[in-house]
Design a protein around this nucleic acid. Structure first.
Length: 645
RNA sequence: GCCGUGUUAGCUCAGUGGCAGAGCAACUCACUCGUAAUGAGUAGGUCAGGGGUUCAAAUCCCCUACACGGCUCCA
């Protein structure tokens, strides 16, 4: 019998007979491992675990722990869903059904039928029924001719369209039960591997993503190799829902929207506004220390400004339309960004190399006409305030400035408890350099500077080629929040375009005119987005220093309201944000409501406290922490507030 | 913008062709209370807005506004 050498990830090489499958190899290692194998990486190609291996190879067994393993199960689940749908809705046509980051979907032309959210449960049930039958996924290599005939027979224009692009000899079918699909694979051995199934949502999706094409029905789902993993997932969904900033923002009275004001335009309520102010204050302090200079610019500007900046040409028709005036031909635009205004500030004086770096900072509110369907809570809005700053510097100073901005971003992460992040460096597409504006040497140097700055700051870095904007390379951070979701935060962007368009100059040591480099940066991105992220990250339990109400004074009965007022007064004098709940309600109720409002400290006040000038301190989510004098409490909370950084 | 689903009291939601509902919140009264909801009562509605079908519409149909999910993932 012929023998093949299989090298495993631990470096060992084992011999097996030709035609052994990954599954059999796993079985030879351990039975429990074999049960978990979903597919296998054979010489870096993903294979079915049941596909015979006939040559020496490197083998990695893929389980649920591997992304590729997950993808395999989800891909098989997509086929299973298609089979179930074909049973329930004979005659529907299928486009593609890939695994995605969190599950799978299938795009379906449902013809005359309509599949809605209400139908998902029935499809799920049918899927579970098919799971129990343990149908194997059978791989079959077919000729292009055979494949075309099969789908012609089935009158399936979609698969025929896919086949057009495929080469003969490269085509495989997978069949499980009664369903056969054109598919590269791989798949799990049989449907029994799919244990927990949840179909999540129905959506429309254009065929091939082109809005001129027909809209197909896309059904999203997710599946798991164990039922309790599904339960855990559903639990996490609940948790994410609970932490939804739109819900928390409403419950805690941070912000609201009004149909009369318009979609995507948040109204900040008093409590939310305090949070905004605290965030601004926090950054202002850091920026002052870092020699930023504050500026303020208007919310509108003449059309001319955006003609110069190029935004008029690029976004003119897809933006808020011009504001007209009694003056014929006069047009103003709402500002979609602060940079052009800041360029004008730069231009207002002759600049010397000695003035650089010039760092202009503004909490600038901008307006962008985001598409109707793009809007989402505070994360995608039509009016928002950027914690913007523009640094005008020489190309040589780019690296140093990046390092300083990285420090600020890392400070933000530290203070708000974002521990898991990766810096992403976006560079040019090296194959296609002509589409970028700016000088080759400048780009070269800036790209190098960013990489070095990130390295020297010890950042975990990922370099992405082709992700740079046409006007410059950038660095931004991908952070994970408390429940593991990824957010992009803290962009630092080099810009060669605007200095050019605004003809910005400085006089160098050589007495010649030079063009400065512009760096855009926004550690929070926008206050709206950052607060949304913060609410979801903390579940609404904000740090004390940023909480809109830090203390609630709760009198046990109306008899103690006078003393409560005195306590409120003492705390207020010490800049502690405090309110007294002087309603004629039971203490239990007052506590409950303060807890629900996530107020960090509650001071319970009754006979004992009044007699001895004490307060009984209850901490949010912790409970009663004992009593102390008012002065002690003031010191206690001041320590917490002042030591956040 | 496109597809789908929604919009009922301040909030959360029930009501699917035949009298507009509940809990919480609000207001009034009683209770003056010790660490997550005191009790009783009162008030609160253009059922998102507009049009249509019907003897009769929150309910069915059409239009509009707003909200939610998706529209990048290529067998």
């Amino acid at each position: 019998m012929e023998i093949i050498n299989v090298s495993l990830p631990d470096g060992s090489v084992k011999q097996y007979p030709v035609g052994h499958t990954a599954l059999q190899i796993a079985e030879s290692i351990s039975h429990s491992l074999a049960k978990r194998v979903l597919s296998a990486l054979v010489d870096n190609e993903i294979w079915d675990a049941t596909r015979p291996i006939s040559k020496d190879c490197k083998l990695k067994l893929l389980t649920w722990e591997d992304d590729e393993g997950k993808a395999t199960l989800w891909h098989s689940s997509a086929h299973l869903m298609a089979e179930a749908i074909e049973h329930l809705y004979p005659g529907v046509r299928f486009w593609v059904g890939p695994p995605v980051e969190n599950g799978f979907y299938y795009d379906i032309d449902t013809g005359e039928e309509k599949i809605t959210l209400n139908d998902l449960e029935v499809i799920e049930k049918k899927m579970m029924e098919l799971v129990k039958q343990n149908h194997p996924y059978i791989r079959k290599e077919v000729s292009k001719k055979e494949a075309i005939e099969y789908f012609k027979d089935k009158k399936d224009p979609y698969k025929l369209d896919l086949l057009e692009k495929l080469n003969d000899g490269d085509i495989t079918f997978y069949t499980q039960g009664s369903f056969t699909d054109l598919c590269r694979g791989p798949h799990v051995p049989d449907t029994g591997y799919i244990k927990g199934i949840k179909l999540l949502t129905v959506a429309g999706a254009y065929w091939k993503g082109d809005e001129k094409n027909k809209m197909l029905t896309r059904i999203y789902g997710i599946s798991f190799p164990k039922e309790n993993e599904l339960k855990e997932f559903l639990h996490q969904l609940e948790e994410a829902k609970r932490r939804d900033h739109r819900k928390i923002g409403k419950d805690l009275a941070f912000f609201t929207f009004s149909e009369n004001v318009g979609m995507g335009l948040a109204l900040w309520l008093p409590r939310g506004t305090v949070v905004r102010y605290e965030l601004e204050q926090f950054l202002r302090k850091i920026q002052n220390k870092n020699a930023y200079q504050p500026v303020v610019t208007p919310h509108i500007a003449q059309k001319q400004l955006y003609v110069i900046s190029g935004h008029y040409e690029k976004y003119g028709k897809d933006s808020f339309q011009p504001i007209r005036t009694p003056q014929e031909d006069e047009e103003f635009f709402l500002k979609p960004m602060n940079c052009p205004h800041h360029c004008e500030i730069y231009r207002s004086l002759p600049r010397s190399y000695k003035d650089l770096p010039l760092r202009l900072a503004e909490f600038g509110t901008v307006y962008r006409y985001e598409q109707h369907g793009e809007l989402h809570g505070l994360t995608r809005v039509r009016g928002f305030t950027q914690d913007d700053a523009h640094i005008f510097c020489t190309n040589e100073q780019v690296k140093g400035e990046f390092k300083k901005v990285i420090d600020i971003v890392l400070k933000v992460f530290e203070v708000f408890g974002f521990k898991d992040y990766v810096a992403q460096v976006s560079l040019r597409d090296m194959e296609n350099k002509q589409k970028y504006i700016g000088k080759e040497e400048a780009w070269e140097k800036a790209e190098q500077s960013i990489i070095e700055a990130a390295q020297e700051k010890g950042l975990k870095t990922k370099i992405e080629y082709g992700e740079a904007a046409f006007y410059g390379p950038k660095l931004d951070f991908m952070v994970k929040d408390a429940i593991g979701r990824k957010w992009q935060l803290g962009t630092i962007q080099v810009d060669y375009n605007l200095p050019e368009r605004f003809e910005l100059e400085y006089t160098g040591a050589d007495n010649q005119k030079h063009r400065p480099v512009m760096i855009h940066r926004a550690p929070f991105g926008s206050l709206e987005r950052f607060i949304a992220l913060l609410l979801e990250h903390t579940g609404g339990n904000l740090p004390v220093w940023i909480s809109p109400q830090q203390v609630a004074v709760l009198a046990i009965s109306e008899k103690f309201n006078l003393y409560a007022e005195k306590v409120v007064h003492l705390l207020s004098e010490n800049n502690i944000r405090v309110l007294s709940d002087d309603r004629n309600e039971k203490i239990g109720k007052k506590i409950r409501e303060s807890e629900l409002m996530k107020i960090p400290f509650m001071l319970v006040i009754g006979e004992k406290e009044k007699e001895n000038n004490l307060v009984s301190v209850r901490q949010h989510k912790v409970g009663d922490v004992g009593s102390m004098s008012v002065e002690e409490f003031i010191q206690h909370i001041k320590n917490i507030v002042e030591n956040y950084q």
